[in-house]
Amino acid sequence: MNNNDILRRLRYTFNFNDKQMVAIFASAGEEVNREQVSQWLKKDDDSDFVALFDTKLAVFLNGFINEKRGKKPGAQAIPEKRLSNNIILTKLKIALNLQAEQIISLLSEVDFRLSKPELSAFSRKVDHKHYRECKDQVLRNLLQAIDKKYHVERSKKIASPTDSQTKARNDKGNYAKKKQNKTPPSSPWVEGARPNASSVYVNPNSTTSPKRQRLKLAK
Rank of each mutant, 00 (worst) to 15 (best):
K93D: 02
K93Q: 13
K93W: 01
K93A: 02
I94P: 00
I94R: 06
I94N: 02
A95L: 08
A95I: 07
A95P: 03
L96C: 06
N97F: 11
N97C: 11
L98G: 04
L98N: 04
Q99G: 09
Q99W: 11
Q99P: 00
Q99V: 05
Q99N: 10
A100H: 13
A100V: 09
A100W: 05
E101D: 14
E101V: 10
Q102N: 10
Q102V: 02
I103Y: 01
I103G: 00
I103R: 00
I104G: 00
I104C: 02
S105K: 13
L106M: 11
L106N: 03
L107S: 08
L107E: 03
S108I: 01
S108Q: 12
S108F: 03
S108D: 12
E109H: 06
E109I: 03
V110I: 13
V110P: 01
V110L: 08
D111P: 03
D111F: 07
F112A: 06
F112M: 12
F112D: 04
F112C: 07
R113G: 06
R113V: 10
L114T: 06
L114W: 03
L114M: 14
S115G: 12
S115Y: 04
S115T: 15
K116N: 09
K116I: 10
K116A: 10
K116Y: 05
P117R: 03
P117H: 05
P117Q: 06
E118T: 14
E118I: 09
E118Q: 15
L119W: 01
S120H: 11
S120N: 15
A121S: 15
A121E: 02
A121H: 04
A121Q: 02
F122V: 03
S123N: 09
S123P: 00
S123W: 07
S123C: 08
S123Y: 15
R124P: 02
K125C: 02
K125E: 10
K125N: 10
V126N: 11
D127E: 13
D127K: 15
H128F: 09
H128T: 04
H128A: 15
H128C: 09
K129I: 08
K129Y: 07
K129H: 12
K129C: 04
K129Q: 12
H130L: 10
R132H: 08
R132G: 00
E133Q: 12
E133R: 12
E133L: 13
E133T: 12
C134F: 01
D136R: 06
Q137I: 13
Q137K: 11
V138P: 00
V138G: 00
V138Y: 01
L139N: 01
L139W: 04
L139V: 01
L139S: 00
R140T: 12
R140I: 11
R140M: 09
N141H: 14
L142D: 00
L142V: 05
L143M: 12
L143W: 05
Q144S: 06
Q144F: 05
A145T: 07
A145Q: 02
A145H: 03
A145K: 00
I146M: 10
I146Y: 02
I146D: 04
D147P: 00
D147C: 07
K148D: 09
K148L: 15
K148R: 14
K148E: 14
Y150G: 13
Y150I: 05
Y150W: 12
V152I: 15
V152A: 13
E153M: 12
E153S: 15
E153I: 07
R154Y: 08
R154I: 14
R154F: 09
S155H: 06
S155K: 12
S155W: 01
S155Y: 02
S155Q: 13
S155T: 11
